[in-house]
């Protein structure tokens, strides 16, 4: 479990975090999303004990982060761009790490073999990292983070720079880790990935928490279903928008490229009401139903500053 309260952090005159709150439940995958410069990486680095907070409180599995050594035994970190010792092989990096964690030699050998297999690096494990692709380096970083079987994983943009095949494998590995009871914090720009992986999210902006909840609950607040309506006469769109806004079942109405987008909570009961109201107001050319995405939720809360 991760619990961070009122975190502040400045780098010179730049305030990176201005009272950030974050709560990640044990055994869940939590997404940390926000525009560029919102403080996502700073938060991950604080939780990794790489940088110190100016004020605020962080507890990792009820241990204060100030007790660095105890906290670091519990966490595994995959940075956005993993920098590895290029003159070593993945296996020798893992051997070095096993020693840092004080693992007995025999046990380490088995664990190294297992993590290499888990990240599918068997063929390249003894080659110099210098010749690895970005995806392979990311897999080495994940192997290093998993080697000591940490309870908590901190993944900073784990999918960036990966090709679709490796992304899929990575997602599966992360979901497997959740099944194993790991607590995982994912910071990622790719909201589609976060939506697929995470149970809950924290949206941050300008170093502050904007909203924190499960994705399901945020959907309910935003509206879980969207109906897109195309009308024959564009001049009736503004009137239609205000008409639909007045309906109780509608959570949000907007216009986008000649379509009126209406968000509702329940497809069975709310869609007929919306279509009925719209057809009474104007001639409908086309209507289609879409699901509210995390991007919609994000744009609602982060005000369209997604970088």
């Amino acid at each position: 479990m991760i619990d961070a309260k009122n975190l502040t952090k400045s780098f010179g005159k730049v305030d990176a975090l201005k009272g950030l709150n974050l709560h990640v439940n044990k055994g869940s995958i939590h997404g940390l999303i926000g525009p560029n410069g919102a403080g996502k990486s700073t938060t991950i680095k604080i939780l990794s004990t790489l940088i110190r907070v100016d004020s605020g409180e962080v507890m990792i599995n009820d241990i204060p982060i100030k007790r660095g050594v105890s906290v670091r035994s519990l966490i595994g970190v995959v940075p956005e761009t993993p920098r590895l010792h290029e003159d070593k092989s993945a296996r020798s990096e893992l051997v070095f790490h096993s020693k840092l964690y004080g693992m007995p030699k025999k046990e380490a050998k088995t664990l190294i073999r297992n993590v290499i297999s888990a990240v599918q690096l068997e063929d390249a494990a003894d080659r110099l990292i210098r010749g690895y692709s970005t995806g392979m380096k990311k897999r080495v970083a994940l192997a290093l983070a998993l080697l000591h079987d940490p309870e908590i994983l901190l993944l900073d943009e784990p999918m960036s720079g990966l090709d679709p095949v490796i992304r899929k494998q990575f997602k599966e590995t992360i979901l497997d880790l959740k099944e194993m009871g790991k607590t995982i914090l994912v910071s990622d720009h790719d909201l589609y990935t976060v939506e697929e992986l995470c149970d809950s999210v924290t949206i941050i902006q300008d170093g502050k928490t904007v909203v924190e909840d499960t994705i399901e609950s945020l959907r309910n607040k935003t509206g879980s279903i969207a109906i897109e309506i195309k009308v024959s006469d564009d001049s009736t769109m503004d009137g239609l928008e205000s008409k639909l806004t007045s309906l109780d079942c509608v959570t949000d109405v907007s216009q986008k490229r000649g379509w009126v987008i209406v968000k509702v909570r329940d497809s069975k009961t709310d869609i007929p009401v919306v279509i009925h109201t719209a057809s009474n107001h104007t001639d409908i050319l086309e209507a289609r139903q879409t699901k509210i995405t995390l991007e919609d939720i994000f744009l609602k809360y982060a005000g369209g500053h997604h970088g």
């Binding site: 660095g68 670091r72 940075p79 590895l84 010792h85 840092l100 964690y101 290093l144």
Partner: peptide, 15 residues
Amino acid sequence: ESKTLYHLLVSPQPR
């Protein structure tokens, strides 16, 4: 400079 220091510093070794 090569940003490899984090490996050491996220391990349980005291700084």
